[in-house]
C-alpha cells in the first residue's frame, strides 16, 4: 500500500513506521511522483512498532505537554494509551483501518469517533482525528508529480505535488511535500483547501538514525486555521518489529 509520510504525523502517534532502508536507485535521476511515494512508504512503514512520545501543544493561552505510549501494526492498526497529565491518564484510542474508538476511564464507555467528531482536535493539539486516519492510498486519490528540487533545513529535496483526481473527494485538495533526496524523509508538507488556502503545515525538525534508516525524532504539525504556535511531537523511545499481543487491537482491550 502506498502511504505518504506527510502523514508522518499519523505515523508519529504510532501509526506508521519504517524499517527497511530504501534508497533511490542510482539510475533514477528524477523519480516519478508514484515512484517517490512508494519509496517514502517503504522507508517509513514497519510491520510492528512500539513508541513513547510527547505532544507539546502551543495554544493561545500557553502550552502543555501530553505523553502517550503507542503500539502499531503496519499503518492500519494502532493502540494508544495516554500517560500524562493526570486528567488524561488512562484515556485510550484504538485505530483499526479507517475506524477509530476512544475510551475514557471516567465513563467506562467506548465511543466510536465518527461524523463531526473526526474533525475535533486530538487532546487539544493541531491534529484532528481525521488526520490520524489519513493513511489512505494517496495514489488512489491524488495525481502525483515531482515538480522540482528545493532545499529544506539545508537538505536537498524533491518537491512532490499531489492534486486530487477528478471525481474524488479528499480533505485537502492539493498537497506539496518536500522529500529529502537522500534520506527519503518528508521534511515539510503543506496541505491546501480547494480555494488554495493553506490549511495544515507539517515538518520534521530533527531526525535520528535507527539501525540502517533515518527516522523523524522531532516534528511539528500546525493547523493554520487555529491561533497558536502548533504542536511539536517528540519521540522519546521507539522500537521496531517488536512483539505485540494480538488482543491489543480489539475494542475489548480498551477497557482493560
Amino acid at each position: 500500500m502506498i502511504r505518504i509520510t506527510g502523514v508522518c504525523v499519523g505515523l508519529l502517534i504510532a501509526w506508521s513506521v519504517g524499517v527497511a532502508q530504501t534508497q533511490l536507485p542510482a539510475t533514477i535521476v528524477q523519480p516519478s511522483g508514484e515512484q517517490l511515494l512508494e519509496l517514502i512508504d517503504a522507508n517509513m512503514v514497519a510491520a510492528t512498532q512500539q513508541s513513547t512520545f510527547s505532544l507539546n501543544i502551543q495554544t493561545r493561552r500557553g502550552s502543555r505537554t501530553i505523553r502517550a505510549r503507542s503500539w502499531a501494526e503496519g499503518s492500519e492498526n494502532s493502540f494508544t494509551e495516554f500517560l500524562d497529565p493526570p486528567r488524561e491518564r488512562g484515556v485510550k484510542m484504538l485505530k483499526l483501518g479507517t475506524q477509530l474508538w476512544t475510551y475514557h476511564p471516567g465513563t467506562d464507555r467506548v465511543i466510536r469517533i465518527a461524523g463531526h467528531l473526526l474533525r475535533q482536535s486530538v487532546m487539544g493539539s493541531d491534529l484532528s482525528y481525521e488526520d490520524l486516519l489519513d493513511n489512505q492510498e494517496l495514489l488512489q486519490y491524488y495525481e502525483a508529480a515531482v515538480t522540482g528540487i528545493d532545499t529544506v533545513l539545508e537538505r536537498s529535496c524533491w518537491v512532490l505535488d499531489l492534486v486530487t483526481r477528478e471525481g474524488e473527494e479528499t480533505a485537502y485538495h492539493t498537497r506539496r511535500i518536500w522529500v529529502d533526496r537522500e534520506r527519503l524523509l518528508p521534511l515539510r508538507e503543506e496541505r491546501f483547501g480547494s480555494s488554495g488556502r493553506l490549511l495544515k503545515q507539517t515538518g520534521i525538525t530533527e531526525v535520528m538514525q535507527l539501525t540502517d534508516r533515518w527516522y523523524p525524532r522531532r516534528m511539528y504539525f500546525r493547523d493554520m486555521l487555529k491561533e497558536g504556535a502548533g504542536t511539536e511531537i517528540l519521540f522519546e523511545t521507539i522500537e521496531f518489529d517488536c512483539e505485540i499481543p494480538s488482543h491489543l487491537f480489539t475494542t475489548g482491550a480498551l477497557r482493560r
Partner: peptide, 16 residues
C-alpha cells in the same frame, strides 16, 4: 447519558 465535548485545553472530555 454521556456528554462528549472538549475541555478548555481542547482535549476530548466525557462524563456520564
Amino acid at each position: 447519558v454521556t456528554l462528549i465535548g472538549g475541555t478548555v485545553y481542547g482535549s476530548t472530555s466525557m462524563v456520564n
